[in-house]
Every structure is written in C-alpha cells, then in structure tokens.
Design a binder for these strands. Sequence first.
DNA 1: GAGTTTTCTTGACTCTTTCAAGATTACGGA
DNA 2: TCCGTAATCTTGAAAGAGTCAAGAAAACTC
Lengths: 142, 142
Amino acid sequence: MSSIGRYEQMLREAELRVTRPRLAVLEAVHRHPHADTDSLLNAVRGDLPEVSHQAVYDSLNTLTAAGLLRRIQPRGTVARYESRVGDNHHHVVCRGCGVIADVDCAVGHTPCLTAADDHGFVIDEAEVIYWGTCPTCSMARA
Amino acid sequence: MSSIGRYEQMLREAELRVTRPRLAVLEAVHRHPHADTDSLLNAVRGDLPEVSHQAVYDSLNTLTAAGLLRRIQPRGTVARYESRVGDNHHHVVCRGCGVIADVDCAVGHTPCLTAADDHGFVIDEAEVIYWGTCPTCSMARA
DNA sequence: GAGTTTTCTTGACTCTTTCAAGATTACGGA
DNA sequence: TCCGTAATCTTGAAAGAGTCAAGAAAACTC
C-alpha cells in the first residue's frame, strides 16, 4: 500500500475525516521526525502550497489527540512532533545544538513507571528526557 | 541565620551580586514551589511592589543558570521553578488540574541515566516526568 | 567615597499558538 | 451520483510568554 494509503487508513481507524492537510501533515511528520511546527508547515507546503498554518496546527493537535502523532517539547523549545507512537521510547536532547535522538530505555518495558512515592497519583506515563551533548558538539568543543 | 541571610550567602557563593530582586525571587520560589513566572512575579511584588517583570525574568534565568533554582516545564505548560536542586528528584503532573508533586525515583540515585543506546551522546541528566491523575481529580471523576 | 561593571526599569517587540467567523470539503444516505 | 449535515479549512486578528535594547540605578572593588 502507498504511504498515502496507509495514512488514509490510519485516519479512518481513528475515526477522523480524511483531508488533504491531514495526509500531508502525516507524511511530513513521518519524513521529518522531531521537526518543529514551522518546519512541518514548510514541508506540508511542499505538497499543498496553499495550506494555512491554522490547518497545520489543527491537524497536529487532532492527530496528537488521536494518538497518531506524539508531541515532544523539551523545556525551552517549541513543540516538536514524531510519528513513532505507542512504544514508550524516550529522547536525548543536545544542550549545544538542540538535536533530538530516540533512545530506548535501559530499564525495560515501562521504565521508571513506578515512582518511589506517588503521592496517591494514578500514573499512566513516564516521560524521560536525557540531556547531554551530541557527538558533533562534543567534537567541536574538543 | 535568617532566610534572607541564607539567600545572600547562596548568591555570594555563586558569585552573583546580591540584589533585592534576586533575594525576593529566591524567597518567592522557596515559598511557592512549582509556581509559574506570573505567580512568582506577584509573590515578589508582595515584598518589592515596584519590581519590573523583566527583573524577575532575569533573576529566574540567572539563578537557574547558576544552579540555585531549577526550571521545570512539562509540555503544554509555562515555565515553573523550584528551589530543590541537586538531588535528582522528579515530578508527577496531573493531567486534570496540572498540579505538580515531587517524587524520588524508584530506580536509585541516578535513575535511567543509562540509555540503552545513547547514539554517542554524553548524557549528564535524565529528566523524568510522570503523567497521571492526582487524588483530587481521581475522586472528582469517580 | 569614586569608579567600574552589573543589574534594573521602561517600553516596545517577537514568536508561537489560539480564537472566531464565514467558506469549503468530506462523508452518509437517498 | 447528488444532497444535506457536520466537520474542517481559510483568513485575519489577537493573546500570552518571553526577549531585546537603551539609559538609569545599584552593587561591588579599591
């Protein structure tokens, strides 16, 4: 099945209407993981030059709410999106250049999901962000 | 030693100038953990009615950079600050009302600091945010 | 106490994101 | 295939958090 066909199916399974902006947004996020909204808007306009920025914002929010995309937003950065959902992976962010990479957690399947004292909270997700320096920035500094 | 005396000492040890806005910001964050910038601005103006919002932003940034405060910013919220630094604790955020509580990580001293595949990054911090529902919101929902 | 440097005040401004109203499009059923 | 309804998109404005810049004030050094 074509990519577009897969995206269409994903939308239908989520009971969302299939629209050109949404397909283009899905395509853009799949092709540019960890991209910010502005980059995605540009990417989407490669397919649909006339799309409004509002449609992209709406689509990103809708698709995120439906679980088709995941929003990540390390402190101090704008929102970024990725298409890898449902596998509980985490991210490492470079303090130098801001680049983001995926990491699987060392601890296992639902890492750290047990807090020492949960204060009575019902916890359903543990989000881990590793901060550090990427190879390129390490090299440049040395 | 008075609180103010302690804060003054903290500033000097960090090689920062001791100014009234900074003392008031330290005091405000110690008294209102997890408060956002706007609440802190109001709290600071309880002591220093004429302080500018810029001074509060500057102080928060400076104190955070110096390691005297810690900035936390779960996705979708504005920046919040706390005075508990250096002990690698984490946070649980309520999806319902947004309240934040401190948690110590179950895994040990430097939880999750070892990613399964670090992509060559030099990792220096692992930030964990637990998402869930607080007791009050759980109660209200039932 | 004087000089130097940092910090604060003031006010405007940027950037990301959201709101609102009307036009358009997608989908279910005839 | 066409219609009606409801969701979605376009357009344009605006809100909110945070930053920039220039001059005034305060803190520290000697």
